[in-house]
Design a protein around this nucleic acid. Structure first.
Length: 98
DNA sequence: GATATGACCGTAA
DNA sequence: ATTACGGCCATAT
């Protein structure tokens, strides 16, 4: 397993400001592994094992929350993020830009 | 070693 | 708009 990658990913996730989101691919790119979006998702699913990270601020590139994690939407709404009728958010507005 | 799975992504129809 | 398919790559079975 690539623990270095996992810690790097978590470091990046920790920097996402409240009210903003990042995509799995974006995290993978910032961590230097463009094609590892799936691995990022996998790391997020086990994030609580490593510590306390705002992994609810990570969504897919379409602005959809994780199907297997229903609470994610509520957590984002608490930060002021608004979902459309189809359960998606406007990435143009909410995506975290460096 | 071989397959299947997953909090993904891009393209094409 | 939705579906289908292939690519991706670490983990799990």
């Amino acid at each position: 397993m690539d623990e270095q990658f996992a810690y790097l990913v978590l470091e990046i996730v920790a920097e996402i400001p409240a009210g903003k989101v990042a995509t799995y691919q974006q995290i993978a790119r910032l961590a230097g592994k463009e094609r590892h979006a799936r691995q990022v998702g996998n790391i997020m699913s086990h994030a609580s094992f490593y510590g306390d990270y705002p992994c609810h601020r990570v969504v897919n590139h379409r602005g959809e929350t994780a199907v297997s994690w229903p609470e994610q939407r509520g957590l984002l709404e608490e930060e002021g993020i608004v979902f459309d009728s189809k359960g998606r958010i406007n990435m143009r507005i909410y995506q975290w830009e460096i």
